[in-house]
């Protein structure tokens, strides 16, 4: 009898939602400064942003364990401060997911902001719009499709994350057992039917997300 692990599914959704919320703010900040500002170490930042794309998830997980583990200086400080460890916990998973999905959020946003001609922002300033108003009225609407695809991609990417979660979070039901971990768990237990149901769910989820991204990014600018 196939068993769907709804707790794991809910956890995955919760993890993805938290990750995407943080990435929205962080991604906008980083993407805007990469697109428009010149500063020392810009190339370094670009490389760091892109690094998780090529880094094996286990390597990322290993370093997170190293820096945030109970034995590390940072980890023990954080634990005495918050009473909670970052490893084998949900907050640790969020941190790992944010780092791991960072390129998926920043790249589409960066492309979108880069596509906005500098003169448009200058025209907004000369029209009397503050930087904040320029962001809301000009930059955000023009980068809309890029931001949406950034969010959708990082959401889907976090939903399907496996290696980092296993390394940092382990397999604690309700705390760190995400859907992809649950699938792995079922396969290990020779429960192919359950693994199949859950895999199908993730497959459909990923497909819908990617399709939505295509629909949104291919849509011509709205006519009013």
């Amino acid at each position: 009898m196939a068993h769907m692990d709804w707790t794991a599914f809910a956890l995955s959704l919760r993890l993805s939602a938290c990750t995407v919320a943080i990435l929205l703010v962080l991604g906008l900040l980083v993407a805007r400064s990469l697109a428009w500002r010149e500063f020392k170490g810009k190339h370094l930042l670009e490389a760091v942003v892109a690094l998780p794309l090529v880094l094996p998830p286990t390597v990322l997980g290993y370093y997170l364990l190293l820096f945030f583990g109970r034995e590390s200086v940072l980890g023990s400080a954080l634990e005495s401060l918050t009473g909670q460890s970052l490893v084998f916990s949900f907050s640790g998973l969020v941190l790992a997911s944010v780092i791991y999905s960072f390129p998926f959020a920043v790249q589409p946003m960066l492309r979108a902001f880069e596509a906005i001609p500098h003169s448009l922002r200058e025209a907004a300033w000369c029209s009397g719009l503050s930087h904040w108003q320029t962001f809301w009225r000009i930059e955000l609407p023009l980068a809309r499709s890029g931001i949406i695809s950034a969010l959708a991609l990082s959401f889907a990417h976090t939903m399907g994350e496996f290696g980092v979660v296993l390394m940092v979070g382990g397999n604690i039901p309700g705390e760190t057992r995400t859907l992809s971990i649950a699938i792995y768990d079922r396969v290990q237990a020779f429960d192919e039917a359950s693994a199949g149901v859950m895999s199908l769910l993730l497959l459909i989820f990923a497909f819908v997300t990617v399709s939505l991204v295509y629909v949104f990014t291919r849509q011509p600018p709205r006519h009013r």
Partner: peptide, 11 residues
């Protein structure tokens, strides 16, 4: 300021 490319907000 009249910009070379007009810089009208396309949206």
């Amino acid at each position: 300021f009249l910009f070379q490319d007009f810089a009208l907000f396309p949206h």
